[in-house]
């Protein structure tokens, strides 16, 4: 059946070429679709979806992060306010305590001074009383001695002086 054409020139239409070209083209198309471009487009589509997904995710994350930051900021603000209030309170408390302590100390000091004064007063009175007692007994002693010795006026004076002196020393 295969007869190589003896005539070199085109003798009319190469009808076989048309059929062959068409057939080959359709086969090529089918093969390419099945083995090359089908999978390729599949993966391109997959990548498209993947990227869209990623972008969506990223946007969501971004939104979340924004929200978190906002929350954090609010919290920060709140805690700062709280800290401020705490410090203020502490300062007030300290001020009050200071006042109290000072007042207490002052009162204490006043009281101490008062007691000390009273003590001094009492001591003084005691001393005066004791002195008075002693003077009285001394006077009696002197008088007895004077009587015993019959002293001159000068001696008497001298004696008194001596006794007074003695008293002064004894105190």
């Amino acid at each position: 059946m295969f007869v190589l054409g003896a005539v070199a020139e085109h003798s009319g239409l190469n009808s076989g070429d048309i059929i062959f070209q068409l057939l080959m083209f359709l086969i090529l198309l089918a093969l390419l679709r099945k083995y090359a471009f089908g999978p390729l487009m599949g993966i391109m589509k997959q990548r498209e979806e993947h990227i869209a997904n990623e972008i969506e995710q990223a946007e969501k994350h971004h939104q979340e992060a924004k929200k978190l930051a906002e929350e954090q900021r609010a919290l920060m603000k709140q805690s700062r306010q709280e800290a401020q209030a705490l410090i203020e309170n502490a300062r007030k408390l300290g001020e009050e305590q200071k006042e109290q302590i000072i007042a207490a100390a002052r009162a204490e000091a006043e009281r101490l001074k008062e007691t000390a004064k009273k003590e001094i007063e009492r001591e003084k009175e005691q001393a005066v009383a004791a002195l008075r007692e002693q003077v009285a007994s001394l006077s009696v002693l002197i008088a007895s001695k004077v009587i015993e010795k019959e002293l001159t006026e000068q001696d008497q004076a001298k004696l008194i002086q001596e006794y007074i002196h003695e008293v002064g020393e004894g105190r």
């Binding site: 295969f2 007869v3 190589l4 054409g5 070199a8 020139e9 076989g16 062959f20």
Partner: peptide, 17 residues
Amino acid sequence: GSPTAEFLGFTFNLANI
């Protein structure tokens, strides 16, 4: 020239094929 062949009544240009 082109190498032609006849097959089933169609003319084929074998170079094209």
